[in-house]
C-alpha cells in the first residue's frame, strides 16, 4: 500500500478539523473534547490528540490527513505526527493576528524537526479586517517574497478549495522531489 501522509497544523481555531472533514471520504476520526481553558472562548470543542481523514484513490493508494491539536500543551503529538509526514500545511486564520505568534512557534517547531515541503494556507481571508497575504507572510517571519513557501487562500468548508490547497502542496512536494533527484543525478 502506497500512502502519502500530510499533516495539517496551525493555531487553535484556524479550521484544521474542518479542513480534514471537508475532504475526507471516511468519517473523520477525531479526538475533540470540551474545551476547558481559554480555548473555550473561541470554540466549544478542541482537538486534543489528532484528527484523521483518508482519501483512497485506487486499490493500493491513499492519502492520509492528520490534523494536529492547536494547543501547545499537546506538542508531543505535533512531534509524533510530523516525523512520519511527507509534507505539511500550516493553516492560519487571516483575521486573528493574535494567533500569528502561535503560528510562528508551530512553524519553528516543525522546521526544526523536518525539512519536508510545506505551504501556508490562509483561512477566513474574506472577513473584514483580515490581514493581507503579504502582511501575514511578514508577520510569520517571511519578509522576502523570494524566500518563502507557497501561500494560498482556503475556505476550509469548501471541498473544491481544500482540494486545490492539497494539489498545491503535492505540486510543491513533486518539485522538491525532482530537485533532489536532479541534485543526486548531478553528483553521480
Amino acid at each position: 500500500m502506497e500512502i502519502m501522509r500530510i499533516v495539517v497544523t496551525g493555531p487553535v481555531g484556524a479550521g484544521k478539523s474542518t479542513f480534514i472533514r471537508t475532504i475526507s471520504e471516511i468519517e473523520v476520526v477525531d479526538t475533540d473534547r470540551k474545551a476547558t481553558d481559554e480555548t473555550a472562548d473561541l470554540k466549544a470543542q478542541t482537538t486534543v490528540a489528532m484528527d484523521f481523514g483518508r482519501l483512497q484513490f485506487g486499490p493500493n493508494v491513499a492519502l492520509h490527513l492528520y490534523g494536529t491539536p492547536g494547543q501547545e500543551r499537546f506538542d508531543f503529538m505535533w512531534d509524533i505526527l510530523i516525523r512520519k509526514a511527507h509534507a505539511f500545511i500550516l493553516l492560519v486564520g487571516s483575521h486573528r493576528p493574535q494567533d500569528f505568534r502561535a503560528a510562528r512557534r508551530i512553524l519553528a517547531f516543525m522546521r526544526y524537526r523536518t525539512k519536508i515541503p510545506m505551504l501556508i494556507a490562509l483561512s477566513h481571508s474574506d472577513i473584514p479586517n483580515s490581514w493581507a497575504e503579504e502582511d501575514i507572510a511578514i508577520a510569520l517571519g517571511y519578509p522576502s517574497p523570494h524566500n518563502r513557501p507557497p501561500i494560498v487562500r482556503v475556505n476550509a468548508l469548501d471541498q473544491s478549495s481544500v482540494a486545490s490547497t492539497i494539489v498545491a502542496l503535492i505540486e510543491t512536494y513533486a518539485q522538491e522531489q525532482a530537485k533532489q533527484l536532479n541534485s543526486i543525478g548531478g553528483k553521480l
Partner: peptide, 8 residues
C-alpha cells in the same frame, strides 16, 4: 503523485 493529483 500523478494519480493523486488527477483524483484531487
Amino acid at each position: 503523485l500523478d494519480g493523486l493529483l488527477n483524483f484531487l
